[in-house]
Design a protein around this nucleic acid. Sequence first.
DNA 1: GGCGGATTCTATAACTCTATAGAATTGTGG
DNA 2: CCACAATTCTATAGAGTTATAGAATCCGCC
Lengths: 208, 208
Amino acid sequence: MPVATRSAPQARRRAAEIIDAAAAVFAERGYDGAATQDIADVLGIRQASLYYYFPSKEAALEQVCLRGVEGFVEQAAATAAGDEPAPEKVRLLILGHLAPMRDRQAYVRVFLRDRHRLPDESRRRVGRVSRRYERIIQGVLEAGVRAGELRAGLDCRLATLALLGMCNAAVNWYGAAPGTTIERIADEFGRLVLDGLVPRATGRRRRG
Amino acid sequence: MPVATRSAPQARRRAAEIIDAAAAVFAERGYDGAATQDIADVLGIRQASLYYYFPSKEAALEQVCLRGVEGFVEQAAATAAGDEPAPEKVRLLILGHLAPMRDRQAYVRVFLRDRHRLPDESRRRVGRVSRRYERIIQGVLEAGVRAGELRAGLDCRLATLALLGMCNAAVNWYGAAPGTTIERIADEFGRLVLDGLVPRATGRRRRG
DNA sequence: GGCGGATTCTATAACTCTATAGAATTGTGG
DNA sequence: CCACAATTCTATAGAGTTATAGAATCCGCC
């Protein structure tokens, strides 16, 4: 029977503020380049006070990274399980991958850049999640090729890596060019990857 | 008239070894995560001895980053100035971008990951070089669209960022999958970006 | 209005890291 | 074989960082 002063929801909100600040600072300076002092400065509290919320800087990184990967696998699995044609699935995968960069850019950025600095066990854990995510995407491509909906002879492994690299890079410049929404980027990336740069023959024979 | 003990070429070779070691360590641990001690360990010398070769850790980063950008602009400019059709130019740009990842992977990786940690002046300098590089690539795409060799309505800015993101990501996994040569990757990436994932109509009408 | 847990603070130990000073060593050309 | 510059070493100053200990403050609730 806690005679709690602040309500549990308020406490959770405060904890989220702390991790938000950590994510912002890690995203800006990189995990190793950031000092816990920098996080405290953002929050206007003392450096030592942070340790009420996490037991170590590494633990803070872990929390940030966990929110950074959150949802990717679920979203991709749902898309893969759908019954749309493969090209549409690819469009959905791209949008699903880019959306978190709008909603929690700092978290995703830290995950992509600094997950290697995680302590061994959690690094292996997020490694497994990442690999699962990649396999889902690759699976969509492979099924598409088998169904004749995607180009025969495609190297699905390299295509998966290309797709992810293309999308992940957006975390570095999204927000810099205002007016470029995630939907717009997803749409353009989808056309790029599906249709290619070379014009399609529009009815008769193919270009030379 | 120096009564030099080691010859000038030998001295230059040694200096290159030092920077090689710095590049390798920075690539492995990240600039902020790496200690000068780690570089010394690779070389089998004492940490303080490094300061005979560079005046500060930042200066070492600068040397590494300079070799990391080296050649990109020149290669791209030469390709852009050629008289091949735009699709072929895109293939050449991709290959030209990937090749340094084979020949000096550590340098390129450090440049891509840690150039933000450079002191202000040199950061702005490499920033200008990067922007020039991007403009050259974007220029090739724009010219291709104007010539009707690339799809009309293409967002050349986003396509440039997509292309670079896709290629840059390779620095993170190239070498992990043995047997995947740079030429192979460049070829596959070229096909992906030019032809797209969706099969081309082979003679008659387009697929539904 | 004051009890008691939640939250933040002060102070500092312990460690790590960069960089400098100056001594020691190395190895080649004369 | 030795003089002397090039190279590496020892030793350490000095700054910055993480994390702990324990005191102080805050604030909803009885």
